[in-house]
Design a protein around this nucleic acid. Structure first.
Lengths: 223, 223, 223, 223
DNA sequence: AATGAATGAGAATTCATTCAT
DNA sequence: GATGAATGAATTCTCATTCAT
């Protein structure tokens, strides 16, 4: 899975546990102050152990960043499939996926923003690794878009552009959440964004379906 | 204009010239490697002068970042009004503005991405300064959206959300351009994004207008 | 004792040891070249370790100066009380104190001169700290002067001025020792200075005592 | 006179004028902040001209310090002979000299303290130059001491030590004036110090003379 | 003579990384 | 496995000094 970050410690379970501690401490700190201003000592201190320990589980500081980013994407990859599990109707699958995606981003807001800020900082091979994992999430969305088009519910627009726009709905919430702070909640943001998007995306046939879906809160699904 | 960054050199013209050189060199370097990994020496070397010189025109390294970000926003603030100058029809104004915005972002792609990556790095007062200038651009868009709504051409959706979505079209091109690289050009991206957006935004009355606009390349305007 | 200079290293014993090494190296260098021309690297090199190490035991360069000055005063504060311990006769107490004071200054000549040269360099709070400690030494002298006056052995002159003159005897040896170099030794300087001072200070009653004291080397004490 | 500090400017009068301006500005700054923390720019700014100008009248920064110190000593050398001019009586000559010396030090307090703080900073040859000029002042005192001894008015103590003690009375006022601040004025300091010194220095024959002198303010002289 | 922009060596300080215990 | 003291390279920033104008 992560053959990229090596550890001198043998005990796989311990490695997992320590890395989780490191990642947890580092995520907060990176989000607050950024990658460079955060020191290994800061991370170790926040995690409650010595700075030397970090180097038993990681080769360099940048590895910590890689782990943080991967862990965040992992969480998303895990969230999304569950959200559409059992839903057969293509348009509803798409809508529920967008909702789940945006809510997942909201939950991992810090890591999402961090990814935008620091992915470029990573050495090429590590960067590619992160982008590949990110692509997995994007592909889930793209698949749902294509399915809706094939079902004649969505207009046959450029799939890349539509997918990108959906990703921007989800990520945009994290990137600009300070902009909405206090004025708009996530629920409102989501329904308004979906209203705009779906009205633009849907075919006449899809429009009917979309109105039904919009009227039904997630999790209740049509029989 | 920029009473924030002080210089020990008096000659305003020289200050302008040197800062332009510093900003030019720094923008490239920051975009490539990020703010922290770029040293003042790197910047000076790339600009072709000594490292000490930089400090005659800037108080600290962070000032260079501030100048870079402000310079980029300045360019946009200058581009946009010109793009809709003389266009009276609300929906066309909106469309032309989005096009100009996205093309401006494309021209200053590095700086736009940099803003996302580094604004958080700035000290609070500098950050606020940048955000205020950014808001000016966003407000131009918001005004155009509101005008289209008042004219009955756009649906009365949440202005904030619509504006945000438009900003994401423009910025998204810079943020994810690597994603489209080689597959999609800016022109295609723009028309596809507008197609999706406008179909979702427009009223029946607006739809007619939009089809005419979409058929007419920018700069030709209806008589 | 020294809650003023903080160290990131916990082990108090090690801190003590390292600081002693730093102070030793720095005292010599500061005395030779002064504070500013001496670099942290010079100090570290002379002490035999890396420059980074210094910053594990000290927050800034000026802290090193503070430690050097305090260490010297500390030594004096420790020397003086011992010199008059067990001596009850007021005039002898005064004389022995002056002798001990001057010899202590001689032993820490470099630091004494350094104090004159650099105390003004210290930030206000550090300077006050040094001056307070210096005052402790001066107060010992003042007390002895007052006791001799109360005993009717010394004329009732201005205590401040007399004390100051005594301090000048001790410090003057360090400040001008280059002036006496080769011509006059400390012993001669001391007896000549005491001869002049005591002849001026003493009452007729004190004069008798003073002649006895002058005839008896320190440490033998009259029965 | 000062073949040591060279200037590229020919016009001797201008050199004199500019150097006076430089010295005036530098003396204050050096006294306040010390030599090293004061920059050439500070000096030039305070004197009201460009930093480049300084280098037309001085070869290096240390030359400025040399000029400052020499100028201060020069002032003393000029003050003292005038003070005893026309006084034939040896003991009065000595007393008036001490008074004039101390008052001169008081007038040039900043420079005197500066000399103690920075002479060691000077390169050897410059330092020697300063010390030679200082010696001229000390020699005036020493001569007066010897004369009083030869006249049988002062005890035949070690001339070096007595002279040194007198210098310490004068310099001590500048070095520790912060100690007396508010409590003791110069007049009181001087008469108390002389009382102590002369009582110790004088022979029975001299004692009579000293009492007459002490009763007569300076400048009135005995008939 | 005077200016002040430009240079570049150098200094303090930080911190990723190592390694003896 | 864990610790944390030690290292030393690297970076920001300052300022004496120079020199074209």
């Amino acid at each position: 899975m992560k053959p990229n970050v090596t550890s001198v410690v043998e005990d796989a379970e311990l490695v997992e546990k320590r890395r989780a501690q490191i990642v947890e401490a580092a995520t907060d700190l990176f989000a607050e102050q950024g990658f460079h201003p955060t020191t290994i000592k800061d991370i170790a201190k926040k995690a409650g152990f010595s700075s030397g320990l970090v180097y038993l589980y990681v080769r360099e500081k940048e590895d910590v960043l890689l782990l943080v980013l991967l862990r965040a994407i992992e969480a998303q990859v895990a969230d999304l499939p569950a959200a559409i599990d059992g839903i057969g109707e293509p348009l509803e699958r798409l809508v529920r996926l967008i909702e789940a995606f945006t809510r997942s981003v909201d939950r991992h807001r810090a890591a999402t923003v961090l990814a935008y800020r620091t992915t470029a900082t990573l050495a090429p091979d590590r960067r590619i690794l992160v982008q590949e994992r990110e692509r997995e999430v994007v592909d889930l969305v793209a698949d749902a878009v294509v399915a809706a088009m094939k079902a004649g519910l969505a207009r046959r627009l450029d799939v890349d552009v539509v997918t990108h726009q959906i990703v921007m709905i989800a990520h945009g919430w994290a990137l600009q959440s300070w902009h909405f702070k206090g004025r708009t909640g996530l629920d409102h943001y989501l329904s308004a964004s979906l209203d705009l998007l779906m009205a633009g995306l849907v075919t006449p046939a899809g429009a009917t379906r979309w109105h039904e879906i919009a009227a039904t809160p997630a999790g209740e699904g049509a029989p």
